[in-house]
Amino acid sequence: MLTDESATDSSERGSWRSRHAATLSSLTLRQISAVLPPGQPWGLWASRQIVARLMDAFGPSMAGTRVERVDVTTADGQRLCGEWVRGRGVSGETPGAIYFVHGSGYVLCSTRTHRRLASWLSRLTGLPVFSVDYRLAPRHRFPTAAEDVRRGWDWLTGHCGIAPERIAVAGDSAGGHLSVDLLLQPDVAHPAALVLLSPLMDLTFTLARSREQTRPDPTMRSHHAVRLVSLYCNGIETRHPRLALDVAGGRLLPPTLIQAGGAEMLAADAIALADDLRAAGGRCELQIWPDQVHVFQALPRISPEAVPAMRTVAAFIAETLGDAEIERAS
């Protein structure tokens, strides 16, 4: 693992299994993403099937997991969908929770694809995870996903009565962008902690392209990613304040842990976000894991580094929730 002080150092290497998986991805996934047209129904369907099967095949175990589906009408008459995920040994009596916002490029994934990762996170932390099932593009465009994420937060803190300081927010990829957008809103009471896995921040992929010039991402090229994300924000100016998030000039965000893979193009987003969080006066720990692919934490069966990375996430959440509890009591 490389901390932010050595994030550009290439002397440290990932495991042989991780490097082999990255090479295999460059020969398969990157080629497939180049030919599947996400704007066509059949291409979108195929992309969703491929991602779902990869997450199932190489994700963590679901043994002992309990899943409770949520489909409710909120106080403002809007529908909220999601699910409570409790890993093995996690009871329903725990006072805190994790609010999980899955990635997908706003298009591909769901609570179902990320259920294994949510279960593992629950088991490691001892906390129940509420995973919001926000609506996907291209059927539902900007700002639908952001509105659903906000609705889930309001339901969790309002209807469920869980104090914000007893909640950690976690998001991966586009879910990272949605999580940061949520917490930048001036009327949102902040949680105890924010955890971001391979966060997408620059929706123009300018940062990603700069990194791609020195090390191509093994799973996708930047121009293919732009094509995917545009299904969500098509017709909206990329400088819109809910898309081009002003982290450095915005609210002070909660203590944040950012993890990204050294082999992925979004490592550039992670580094830039950490810089912006600190510029705003926040506490941020950045970890770039050598030779790891995008959201490697969800793929422990091919990435041994997923295990220590997730243990680090769990320790960070335990520490920040404990700090928030001490502050609340003092």
Rank of each mutant, 00 (worst) to 15 (best):
C109H: 04
R311N: 15
P60S: 12
C109Q: 15
A329F: 03
P164Y: 08
S210H: 04
R227Q: 06
E83G: 04
E147K: 05
V226N: 08
L277A: 02
G322S: 09
P218N: 03
G235F: 00
D56L: 13
S25Q: 11
E212I: 03
P241R: 08
L24H: 03
S104P: 08
Q213N: 07
D269S: 09
L197H: 09
S33C: 13
E165K: 06
P41S: 13
S222F: 08
L24W: 09
Q292R: 13
V293N: 11
G176N: 14
G59I: 14
R328L: 13
C160A: 13
S47Y: 05
S110G: 02
I258E: 12
P304C: 14
Y106H: 12
A34G: 02
R209V: 12
L245Q: 10
Q49V: 15
P38W: 08
N234Y: 00
H240S: 01
D217A: 07
P60A: 11
T113Q: 15
S179P: 06
L54N: 11
D246L: 11
T94I: 12
D133L: 03
L80S: 12
G96P: 05
D187Q: 12
E147H: 06
H240K: 08
P128D: 06
L321G: 11
G261C: 14
C81H: 04
R150K: 10
A75G: 10
V85L: 04
Q297Y: 05
A318C: 11
